[in-house]
Design a protein around this nucleic acid. Structure first.
Length: 729
DNA sequence: TGAGCGTACGCCCCG
DNA sequence: CGTACGCTCA
């Protein structure tokens, strides 16, 4: 037990040992937050003799949950089992809802729709309402629906313009989900809240079970998550929350930094612990991070420091092309590995998942082992979606989205018109999907009726095979008997698709061995759940490899050396930034990225980049300029070098000089329109027009910001003065 | 009514 | 460059 506290400083120890009552730990980046959390749980189990099952620990990602479980197990040695309630909010909710599904009138095997599925559904609803998808963009409507749900907005008050449309689509969308025993990610939380509110006895069960509740990354919880926590706690006050406002990066999904203040109000007798000392990074890195984050106006001042000395300077590298950038990263890694570093010591961080591609290509070429975290692209591949949809349909017959997909893979001569008739008929008669098919002859006509019934016969046949065949044989039967494999024969990506399907099959087979005590239907249910809820970890079998991940996914992790790549305006910060708030969120993301590095930080970009098939000249990320130049050394073709531009440029080893020259000489380099930035000469009283908010009047201009009053429903907005969306009238 | 083909359009993060 | 949708033809 003494071991447990030995490696902690005084503040950390305090956070571990203050087990009773509400505790708020403000934990700066690298302040040993995970150690505190795991030590606290281990301390509760070993010292306070708390039953592991009576501890609830909520993490933000599945990866964090997994890591925490492992560390607790290590800390408590072999004597105690790790708590089974270490999970994300969503995973916890699924567990509760499967158990008490009857309390909210859902079937036990309800299905969870992922983002793509919900987008499809929103599209379908927009079409159903005969709305113009050009005017009402499905993506945006979906975003607004999500906002209604996470912010608990009252749709009755939505009575102007587009809001009426959104409210209508929302109602339809929600109806479809409920009628078909489907949930989106927000529903998992909302329905758990509903379950607890409707069934006090069930809520009480959990209040009594969980004696100790711990929540990580509290600054990124949203309103419904807060509500849920309150319900689970009830009268219980043993709540431990950890947070850092500077690392709040999930506003886009409803995260509310205000939840920390709310906590203080709701639990006025809270005990606060400040973890300020950083144990991770050199002071060069911390200075850069501090400097960047102080540009944010909305924050509590805080300064990270460590005892690690200054360390190496931050390297800023600008390649001519994006290929140069990638080659440089690869070269740096290889050089260092030759001098004794491990591939594990490096991480490549990017703003968007698609950036991983070019790194994958070059790493493969140069035999640099890597793994990619948190990329769901494998499960989003068409063929994998098709197969999982088959599995869903075999288990859950009422799902319109899935039915639509499977009935056309392969094509069976059933199209949109027939399906619309079928679904309308189903709705009218309140039939289940399969019952609707069996009785729809009058509604859809004889030909379509036969086709639909043949299809349902097939699915029913598959269902009967589930209990008798191994997963391996089961999947083979589905792929062959459905004609799916045959339909791929003219596909030029046939080999890759089949390879992917086989990979998925192997995954199922492996899981089959784990869940031996469950019915096969349950195993399938768990697997589908996992596919939806958890993101893949590609190439996880690599023992020593470079980690590639998004800046978001990097939160909570650390590496000896970190490359933040594609540091260009429009990529990072993203071109979607419109308001000062948006920009501050991007800046926090930069702060998170910078503070992942222990010893050395690289910021890289390229002078020209190909997007949408066009080659553009890029502009450096403003975050580079926010770092004190004394902390930086410049490498490569760079606008910062003392002899600006091409005079100082020398082709980098391993690149193709001919290609570079061609790029520079030929007249194919189009000036990028500086993304979304332009000089706007705005003054108080000016009339302006905004692409999203319409006409407005400038109320004030302060530095790079301006306040503009728009017509209802937009009202007064604080925007970036030089944003392209603004035009002076 | 469904499927195939051509055109238009898009830079996201997570559970 | 890639995909998703709309139009046209069978």
């Amino acid at each position: 037990m003494i071991d447990l506290l030995k490696n902690l400083n005084e503040k950390q120890r305090e956070a571990v040992q203050k087990t009773e009552g509400p505790v708020l730990a403000i934990a700066g980046a690298g302040s040993g937050k995970t150690s505190v959390l795991t030590s606290r749980i281990a301390y509760l189990i070993t010292e306070k003799k708390v039953d592991p099952d009576r501890i609830l620990a909520i993490t933000f990602t599945n990866k964090a949950a997994k890591e925490m479980k492992e560390r607790i197990a290590a800390n408590t040695s072999m004597y105690f089992q790790a708590p089974s309630w270490v999970s994300t909010f969503h995973a916890m909710c699924v567990k509760i809802l499967r158990q008490h599904h009857y309390g909210i009138d859902y079937r036990r095997n309800f299905q969870i729709l992922d983002d793509d599925d919900t987008l499809q559904l929103v599209k379908a609803k927009i079409k159903e309402l005969n709305l113009d998808a050009k005017m009402y963009i499905p993506r945006e409507i979906k975003g607004m629906i999500q906002k209604i749900k996470t912010k608990r907005l009252d749709i009755k008050t939505m009575d102007s313009g587009i809001q009426v449309v959104v409210a209508t689509v929302y109602k339809k969308y929600q109806e479809t989900l409920r009628d078909n025993h489907l949930m989106d990610f927000d529903d998992l939380l909302i329905l758990t809240i509903e379950l607890f509110k409707k069934n006090e006895d069930i809520r009480k069960l959990y209040e009594e079970q969980f004696q100790y509740v711990l929540i990580d990354e509290f600054q990124d919880t949203n309103d419904i998550q807060y509500e849920l926590v309150k319900l689970i706690l009830g009268k219980n006050k043993n709540i431990f929350i950890v947070g850092d406002e500077d690392q709040s990066i999930y506003k886009f999904r409803g995260a509310n930094i205000g939840n920390i203040s709310k906590f203080k109000k709701d639990y006025p007798d809270f005990h606060i612990v400040l973890l300020e000392q950083n144990y991770r990074s050199t002071n060069t890195i911390l200075k850069a991070a501090n400097k960047i984050i102080t540009k944010n106006k909305v924050r509590i001042p805080k300064n990270l420091f460590s005892e690690k000395g200054l360390g190496e300077k931050i390297t800023v590298f600008k390649g001519t092309t994006s290929r140069d950038e990638v080659e440089y990263v690869a070269m740096q890694i290889n050089t260092k590995v030759r001098s004794g570093y491990k591939y594990n010591d490096f991480a490549v961080l990017y703003r968007a998942n698609n950036a991983s591609r070019q790194f994958e290509d070059i790493f493969l070429q140069k035999h640099i082992p890597y793994r990619i975290y948190g990329n769901t692209s494998f499960f989003k591949r068409g063929e994998i979606k098709d197969l999982t949809s088959y599995l869903r349909l075999i288990m859950e017959s009422d799902d319109e989205v899935t039915f639509t997909r499977v009935v056309s893979a392969p094509k069976r001569g059933v199209g949109t018109v027939t399906l619309k008739k079928l679904f309308d008929f189903k709705q009218e008669q309140s039939y289940s999907m399969f019952d609707a098919v069996r009785n729809c002859e009058k509604a859809v006509g004889k030909g379509a009726f036969l086709k639909l019934n043949n299809f349902v016969d097939l699915i029913v046949k598959f269902r009967s095979m589930l209990e008798t065949l191994s997963f391996n044989d089961f999947i083979d039967r589905i792929l062959i008997d459905s004609g799916y494999i045959d339909s791929l024969k003219d596909d030029d990506k046939k080999e890759v698709r089949i390879e992917n399907l086989m990979e998925f099959k192997t995954m199922l087979a492996e899981n089959e061995k784990i869940y031996v005590d469950y019915s096969r239907e349950d195993v399938l249910m768990f697997l589908l759940e996992e596919v939806t809820l958890k993101s893949e970890e590609k190439n996880s079998d690599v023992e020593d490899g470079v980690t590639m991940l998004t800046l978001h996914a990097a939160k909570g992790l650390e590496f000896r050396e970190v490359f933040i790549v594609n540091m260009e305006m429009g990529i990072f910060p993203t071109s979607r930034v419109q308001t000062q708030d948006d920009l501050e969120e991007e800046r926090r993301l930069m702060y998170v990225g910078v503070t992942r590095a222990k010893e050395k930080l690289y910021l890289t970009n390229a002078n020209v980049r190909q997007t949408f098939g066009d080659i553009h000249q890029t502009v450096d990320s403003l975050f580079i300029k926010e770092i004190d130049p004394d902390l930086i050394e410049i490498k490569g073709y760079s606008q910062y070098s003392t002899q600006p531009h091409s005079t100082s440029y020398k082709p980098i080893a391993g690149t193709d000089p001919v290609r570079n020259e061609r790029l520079q000489q030929a007249n194919i380099i189009k000036k990028r329109n500086l993304d979304h930035y332009q000089e706007n000469d705005l003054n108080k009283g000016d009339k302006v027009s905004h692409t999203t908010f319409g006409d407005g009047v400038v109320i004030s201009v302060v530095n790079e910001n301006c306040m503009i009053a728009f017509k209802t429903p937009h009202g007064i907005k604080t925007l970036l003065k030089n944003h392209k969306a603004i035009t002076k009238l």
